[in-house]
């Protein structure tokens, strides 16, 4: 789609903010230098990792409507991504047993209007049997 050809490391001035170089975008662009067969993969540093004896289906949580910020915290506001939630088993099971309140999740995502609209949605519970995650 040509993104790497269009995206520049320099942001044009908008609404009174001067144009400036974006170090982050420049760093990303550095992996896409030269012809496509010279491009390198971006070595993402893994922040969130669960032990290997836990099987965590991320897509089930996304499909269930859990907002990203619920577990990952305010990523858009982070200068450098850090692990926001403890991710320990008690924290996970707590949400499964009590139920996930969509309103809280939307609030964490910064969407107050949607959070108000979802105030009466039933908390979404999930299975908490050991063998659902530990096998």
């Amino acid at each position: 789609m040509g993104c790497h050809a269009i995206v520049q490391g320099r942001r044009a001035p908008i609404q009174g903010i001067a144009d400036r170089d974006t170090a982050a975008i420049n760093q990303l662009l550095s992996y896409a230098k030269g012809t496509p067969d010279q491009w390198k993969p971006i070595p993402w540093v893994r922040i969130h990792k669960l032990p290997e004896y836990v099987h965590f289906p991320h897509f089930r949580h996304v499909n269930a409507g859990v907002t990203c910020q619920t577990c990952h915290g305010p990523i858009p506001e982070m200068q450098r991504v850090y692990q926001y939630a403890s991710l320990n088993m008690g924290w996970c099971v707590n949400c499964h047993v009590k139920g996930y309140k969509l309103a809280d999740g939307l609030l964490a995502a910064g969407d107050t209007a949607a959070a108000r609209a979802a105030a009466n949605v039933e908390p979404k519970k999930a299975r908490y049997d050991c063998a659902v995650c530990h096998y």
Binding site: P36, P43, W44, V45, R46, K49
Partner: peptide, 10 residues
């Protein structure tokens, strides 16, 4: 250990 996630380029 710092773990890295290396995706495919293509």
């Amino acid at each position: 250990r710092v773990e890295q996630l290396i995706p495919y380029v293509v």
